[in-house]
Amino acid sequence: MQVEVRLLKNNEVGLLKEFLYEAIFIPEGVTPPPRDIVEKAELRVYIDDFGTRHGDNCLVAVIENKVVGAVWTRIMNDYGRVDDATLSLAISLYKDYRGQGIGTRLMKEMLSLLKMQGFKKVSLSVQKANYAVHMYEKVGFHIVDENSEEYIMVNEL
């Protein structure tokens, strides 16, 4: 399977709403929330006016001309916020494409891009039960804070 990783095109920004929904961790046996949950203010910060702010970056994974995953960053007041200068990161893949190394490749390429742009660190928030915690650790993230349900992780670029 040939995977192309490239920058998100301007006419694809609408896909971020779909990938934001896919990024919601749903534990085994739990009913997924309705798709319109991404319209809530605390989630809209990830995608509103994307591409217009310093730190807005998005890479996508494409297989056979279909975008199957995305990783994006922006400076925002989200769940993983560390401070005003640190980018927050979100990543998701369609279910059928998870567990195949595509997410790891997206992460590594995004971290390289952020280093080239001169950013010092990037953060994310992840549910403790999410299997992706291990992938984040493998690519250099470490836990800096936690609450009962989530870790806040940072990668010092």
Rank of each mutant, 00 (worst) to 15 (best):
Q2N: 15
I63A: 14
K108P: 06
V60R: 03
N10Q: 14
R74G: 11
W72I: 04
K9A: 09
E28C: 00
E156C: 05
R98M: 13
V5D: 00
E18Q: 14
T73W: 06
I75C: 03
P33K: 07
A70W: 05
M116I: 11
I63S: 14
Q2D: 13
K66T: 11
E149P: 08
A70H: 02
E28T: 07
N11M: 04
L111Q: 03
I102H: 07
M76E: 03
G118F: 11
D78M: 02
F19Q: 06
D49W: 02
H54E: 13
E12Q: 13
M153S: 00
Y151M: 14
M116L: 12
G99W: 11
L8Y: 01
E4S: 15
Q117Y: 12
D49K: 14
F25Y: 15
V62G: 09
E150A: 12
L20E: 15
Y79W: 13
R53M: 10
T52Q: 14
G51N: 06
F119S: 03
L93R: 01
S125I: 07
L7R: 11
I143P: 04
P32I: 08
L113C: 01
Y97G: 04
L87D: 07
Q127V: 12
A129I: 06
G140T: 08
P27M: 12
V68S: 12
I91L: 12
A61R: 01
I47V: 13
V60F: 05
Y21P: 02
